[in-house]
């Protein structure tokens, strides 16, 4: 019961649910950078979202199955083949032992999720199999996958129906090269700052699971030097002194001392995992109460299909 990696560049890792309740001892969240796509993929193969998927950043990706398996593809859509046959995203796929899964580069979006019934087995650290690369924790030996790795596959939890499952079309999110993320002001945004909501920013090549650098016309912010370090969470937009924004993703540190100017809202944080270098990013202003209403709306769109998933 295994999958052998043939190509997994530039970065593929095992990711599942985030680690929660551990930030006070310096342990970051990790988990799928786009948790909605990971959960949609898990749903198609009957997995709990705590089962690990392979999170592929940009591709190409190639792997050969050493067992029969049910798999699914979700997230950033690329050309996909099982052996020589083109296959679709967002439906349950059957793979025979010896067959090869091949993915190209996605046209838009950045991260693709390969899920397998039973989940990929990995090292569990602090109740999660998710990989945290900077400290080599969790996942496959705490590191990114490379050629020759053999990933063990768990036992499927229930028999899959003969007919493939398909993600409801309203939940198949298309990505473009322009992201509009709903956000609320952070603690260090000057009170009457309005320009930031009218501008768009560009994602630079400095992008990883820790965060994405944004270039553009950020407001000049006067803050006292040496802000005291404070707890910080994924979704925060920090503005370091060099003047480019840094949007924090799931592997970000637990505390920070840079000005925290915006916070991407919980409803839209999953989209951050699909921003690629060169994409444009705008922020749509919300109050915390409006943000709670947005969250309720999106959560209730997802619940009928994925009752156990929370944004």
């Amino acid at each position: 019961m295994s999958l052998e990696i043939i190509q997994a560049s530039p970065q593929s890792t095992l990711q599942a649910t985030p680690r929660t309740g551990m930030r006070h001892v310096g342990i970051p969240a990790s988990g799928a950078a786009d948790p909605v796509s990971h959960a949609l993929g898990a749903r198609l193969v009957g997995n709990d979202i705590s089962c690990a998927s392979i999170e592929i950043t940009y591709g190409p990706f190639e792997a050969v199955f050493h067992c029969d398996a049910h798999i699914s593809l979700a997230g950033a859509v690329s050309e996909a083949h099982i052996t020589d046959k083109p296959v679709a995203f967002h439906e349950t796929l059957k793979v025979r032992s010896g067959e090869t899964l091949k993915l190209g580069h996605p046209a838009t979006g950045l991260r693709t999720y390969v899920s397998v019934a039973g989940g990929f087995k990995g090292e569990v650290f602090a109740s999660s199999t998710s990989t945290y690369l900077p400290a080599h924790l969790g996942g496959f030996d705490g590191r990114a996958l490379k050629q020759g790795d053999m990933l063990a596959i768990g036992e499927a939890s229930f028999p899959l129906p003969d007919e493939p499952l398909r993600t409801p079309s309203e939940l198949q999110l298309p990505y473009t090269n322009a992201f509009a993320l709903r956000a609320t002001p952070g603690p260090d945004l000057p009170e009457h700052e309005a320009e930031i909501w009218a501008r768009s920013f560009s994602a630079t090549r400095r992008a990883s699971r820790i965060g994405i650098e944004l270039d553009g016309d950020f407001p000049a912010i006067e803050v006292k030097p040496n802000l005291p370090s404070a707890g910080i969470l994924p979704g925060a937009l920090q503005l370091p002194p060099q003047g480019r924004g840094f949007l924090l993703l799931p592997d970000c540190q637990t505390t920070g001392g840079y000005p925290h100017i915006l916070q991407v809202n919980r409803s839209d944080r999953h989209l951050m995992g699909q921003i690629r270098p060169g994409d444009s990013v705008m922020f749509l202003k919300r109050t915390p109460d409006e943000a709670a209403a947005d969250l309720k709306e999106k959560q209730e769109l997802l619940l009928p299909w994925m009752p156990d998933f929370r944004l």
């Binding site: 006070h24 005291p228 404070a230 707890g231 637990t254 505390t255 919980r266 969250l295 309720k296």
Partner: peptide, 14 residues
């Protein structure tokens, strides 16, 4: 999360 001069507390708005 305890910081140098603060405590940050996260809740689920849902």
């Amino acid at each position: 999360v305890v910081g140098r001069e603060s405590v940050t507390v996260q809740y689920d708005p849902y």
